[in-house]
Computed example of a mutant assay.
Amino acid sequence: MKSLTCSDIFQTLKKNLIWVLLIIMIAQVSVWFYQSFIHVKEYRSEMSLLVNVEQKNDTANLQEGTRNNIQLITTFSSVLKSSKITDLVSAKTKDSQKGKPLAKNLTISSDQNSLVFRISYTDSSKERVDRISQGYLAVVEKEMPKLFKGSTVVALEKPETHLIKQGYIMNLIAFFVSLILAAVLILVLTIMDYTIKTKEQIIKLGVTCLGDIPLIRE
């Protein structure tokens, strides 16, 4: 097998630099084409809701009530994503998705010991995202006080829909993959290059070297 040196690899790289740049360029163009024409765009609507239960005015009951509310965080979260709520949302918005399919695109989160819930809904249709998020807010504001007596729902942030951006992760992945492919190409070309470039290579072949012919530049 031919022994490789850094000089050989560098010389091959210089000769084939255009191919290396072309591989990187093709990879980036492929990512752009995929994101622009193949990848399905997704939209997300986000809102923030404060769910609270009315407390009595005295300090002792107020502290106890607040503690009970915090303990109900998991229950509130489960109810907000329950089939009862999602079915009512589907009925109100006259949407074909019901129960689990709708809940699958629904995300509910909150900070530790916080009664503020961040709710997001994701779908490929901007019109559906707008319709479902508005319907969801209306249903929750109406149904939660029925399920939890004395509770109130306050929309701290109204639903806002935006396009989910892909970012530069795919571009970075494509860049590193193209670099690996280019490196493999350079190594293969270097290994397959049996061009005689030095006097030492001639001697290794067992051929007598009679002399050098100088290159005279005009």
Rank of each mutant, 00 (worst) to 15 (best):
D111V: 14
E127C: 09
D95L: 06
M144D: 00
A91S: 07
M170T: 14
Y168D: 09
V184S: 10
I173D: 05
S114A: 12
T93P: 04
D111C: 15
L137M: 14
T122H: 07
S133A: 12
H162R: 14
Y168M: 09
K92M: 11
P101H: 03
L115A: 10
L172I: 08
F148W: 04
N171H: 03
L102P: 00
T152L: 15
M170W: 11
I132N: 00
Q97E: 09
V116A: 08
N113Q: 15
I132S: 00
E143G: 04
R131E: 04
G150S: 09
S151T: 00
N113I: 15
D111A: 15
R131L: 08
I119E: 01
L179G: 10
R128G: 02
H162F: 10
T152A: 14
K100E: 03
S125E: 10
T122L: 06
E157M: 06
E141L: 14
A155T: 07
K98P: 14
K104C: 01
G135F: 01
K158E: 15
E143L: 10
T161W: 03
K146F: 05
K92P: 08
L181F: 12
S133H: 10
K104E: 00
S109L: 14
L106C: 02
L172R: 12
G150Q: 05
E141C: 11
K146A: 06
T161M: 07
S110M: 11
K146M: 09
T93S: 04
E141K: 13
L106P: 01
P159Y: 07
L102K: 00
K146W: 05
A182C: 13
R131K: 08
M144R: 02
V154W: 12
K94T: 12
L88K: 08
E127M: 12
A138T: 13
T93V: 06
S120F: 04
S120T: 09
S90R: 00
G135V: 06
K165Q: 14
K126P: 10
D123Y: 01
S178C: 11
G167E: 01
F117R: 04
K98E: 07
S114F: 12
K98T: 13
I180L: 05
N113D: 14
L137T: 14
V139F: 03
K165I: 11
I119P: 01
R131M: 10
A91N: 12
N113P: 13
G150T: 11
R131C: 07
K126I: 09
I173S: 08
E160S: 12
S110H: 13
T107F: 07
A155L: 11
Y121A: 04
D130W: 02
L163T: 02
A174Y: 02
S151D: 01
V154S: 13
A183N: 06
G99A: 02
I108L: 02
L163Q: 05
V153C: 07
L102T: 00
S110A: 10
V177C: 04
E143Q: 04
M144C: 06
T93M: 10
I169A: 06
S133W: 08
V129H: 05
R118H: 15
K142F: 07
I173M: 12
A155W: 13
